[in-house]
Simulated scan of single mutants.
Amino acid sequence: MRPPMPEHGGPDGGPDATHDFSTNASPLGPPPALLSAVQQADRRAYPDPAYGVLRRRLGDAHGLRAERVLPTAGGSEGIRRLTSTALRTGRREVWVPQPGFGDYAAAAQALGLTVRPYASPTDIRPAVPALVWICEPCNPTGTSLTAWPTLGDEHLLAVDRAYEPLRLRGEAPAVPPHAWQLVCPNKALGLTGVRAGYLLAPAEDAALESALALAPSWVLSAEGVAMLTHWHDAATADWLVGARAQLRDWSIAQRRMLETLDWTQQPSCTPFWLARPPRPDIALRLRERGIRVRDAASFGLPGWVRVSAQPRRSQDALQQALLEIESEDS
């Protein structure tokens, strides 16, 4: 039986949402210079299939050899490829955060690997060689690690860092040197339609050759190459500083507004967080009004939703809709 497709936020088959609080991508991006480069990408020719210049540029930015940089067609393709690599190199379990992004488990189930959910990294105790996923900061909670799991060399540790550029407070924990890292800039840049990211392999990792062999030809489009080429530009870094400041302000205002309407909200270091409305049908009622939030039932959290910080006009629309729903039912 084919494993079910994981549920995602964003498009749901209905009319476009006027105000989308379900996405965890930045509503601010992209920075002008990077956007211009993406729009001007040469679509008439194949990119370099080895992505030599791009890999050297990314490697230099991370202080790594180019050979340790593996371009991916977005985070999901990177997750699938590393999961296949884990299988090919003798791993038989995949440990995934719960709640967490559904693609980790879906990739493992598609290959017949045993999925082991965990609530805390201290719960990770593989009995057989395993692939262990850490999302730092975590989606959907927006929380950050306090300690890394202790794992032997027979295990493959993979850290999904898609939301690190959106960290609004606190310091990022230093990633262990033996860990693989998945970097996906498109969420921070507000360019989720450009499917491009990259894996960083640990030094001398035996899985590197397998991960390289599993890459499809021309895994990145011309637009993806352009986006990643300018990801580490000084102009992009400066723009991200301002974007985080704006998202921080919007997050504070939005949390205050929801608090006045009796929503329970969890702490987060990102511009998205888990919230529990005072009524269980709120996601459906808001959707009828052109407002989308991310129902967290598929994360194993019925009654909760994930919301992201949005501009003030969207916050005003959300507040008005919630007040209307309350008045209709009073």
Rank of each mutant, 00 (worst) to 15 (best):
I282S: 04
L247P: 00
P267N: 11
W263N: 05
I252S: 07
I282R: 13
R279S: 08
V293M: 10
A253E: 11
R312W: 11
V305T: 13
T270D: 04
V305C: 13
R312T: 15
W304K: 12
S251L: 07
D281S: 04
S314A: 13
S251R: 15
R306Q: 09
Q266S: 06
L261T: 15
R244K: 09
R289F: 05
E259G: 07
R279Q: 12
L274S: 13
R244A: 06
L247W: 03
R294G: 02
W250V: 00
A309H: 03
G290T: 15
R287N: 13
G242I: 07
Q254V: 02
I282N: 04
A253K: 11
Q254Y: 15
Q310A: 11
E288K: 10
L261R: 14
A297N: 07
Q254E: 14
I252Y: 10
P280Q: 02
C269L: 06
Q315C: 11
S314N: 08
T236E: 02
M257C: 03
D249G: 02
E288I: 07
T236Q: 02
G242W: 13
C269D: 08
R313S: 09
A245L: 12
E259W: 02
P311R: 08
T260D: 14
A297C: 11
Q266R: 15
D281N: 14
A237W: 02
W273Q: 08
Q266C: 05
D281F: 00
L286M: 13
P271N: 09
D262T: 08
R276V: 04
S298H: 15
A296C: 09
R244T: 15
Q266K: 07
R313E: 09
S308G: 14
P271M: 10
W263T: 14
W304S: 06
S268D: 03
I291T: 04
A243H: 13
R276H: 11
R276L: 14
W239R: 12
D262N: 12
V307H: 01
